[in-house]
Design a protein around this nucleic acid. Structure first.
Lengths: 147, 147
DNA sequence: CTAATATCAGATAGGTTTGTCCGATTTGGC
DNA sequence: GCCAAATCGGACAAACCTATCTGATATTAG
């Protein structure tokens, strides 16, 4: 059990925050991301392709190629990344796994889980990947941070 | 992504709550659980064997055999079921998937996630599987509920 | 033009989780 | 004692997720 998100989604979030800290219009290669974030190269490649298809990144082939954000770094939220990779089904599925779970036909933790889920969503939507990247003290992200 | 817990864990919680609503010392068979809760028979069998090995259920072979709770129904929390099946690693792992995440070296959502996780744990620990079963309005659980 | 260096696309391998099958064993009822 | 009904145990299959490999394509530098 990868806590909540899939591995792909975790890697996507890590990569997006990393790219957001780079100067705008500067390309970031899979190689760099893979090495700095310790993510398997080819696996990461697939994920970045996915994010590109979903319109969150733009890519450029050839030497000096790589990826950059498709939109302003402050306009992309972690939630949008999650949505692109894992989808948003966690927002309306039952914690206990009951196929039908509703206000009229609730499971034992239906309401409590609703509250927590909203907080989780809020956490992923009230910030953006740039601010999130800035807030991190991890060395993979601090080394190229503006001072 | 099965929202948070594994399928096995969801089934274990569903089954435990069901058994907790049965009269004490009455055996519940895999067949009954499987049909009422719509859980694959053989898969459920494995899970119940697991819960038995972990000391949460007791089993009896032969006709009129089945499973019952190993301890008083009010003393078993949903959290204990989760712990037995999925473990409790979700309590100390990073939401964004960073291998090392700590107060000194936090990820972007470290503190927020800590708070949510504590609430989640509290939700699973402040009740027991009997109360949880009683609180459900789902027909699978209400049909044999005391009035 | 050529070489080097990127991404792109598809096939494939490995691992884990989910789900199935079957024979063995135990228990209760006749 | 015998049969029916239940769990037990191990092997197996299917699906999904993670990860790898390879050839094709595009771009830049020289």
């Amino acid at each position: 059990m990868s806590v909540f998100f899939s591995r792909q989604c975790e890697y996507a979030l890590q990569a997006a925050m990393y790219i957001a800290l780079k100067p705008e219009n500067e390309m970031t290669s899979i190689r760099e991301l893979s090495m700095k974030l310790e993510i398997p190269y080819h696996f990461l490649a697939k994920i970045l392709q996915d994010l590109t298809r979903k319109g969150l990144l733009t890519s450029l082939k050839g030497s000096a190629g790589g990826y950059m954000l498709a939109r302003p770094k402050e306009s992309i939220t972690p939630f949008q990344i999650v949505e692109a990779i894992d989808g948003s089904s966690f927002l309306d599925s039952c914690l206990l796994g009951f196929p039908t779970c509703s206000k009229e036909n609730p499971c034992a933790v239906h309401e409590d889980w609703n509250v927590l889920r909203d907080k989780l969503r809020d956490m992923l939507e009230r910030t953006n990947i740039y601010e999130a990247g800035l807030s991190m003290k991890k060395p993979q992200y601090t080394w190229n941070k503006p001072s």
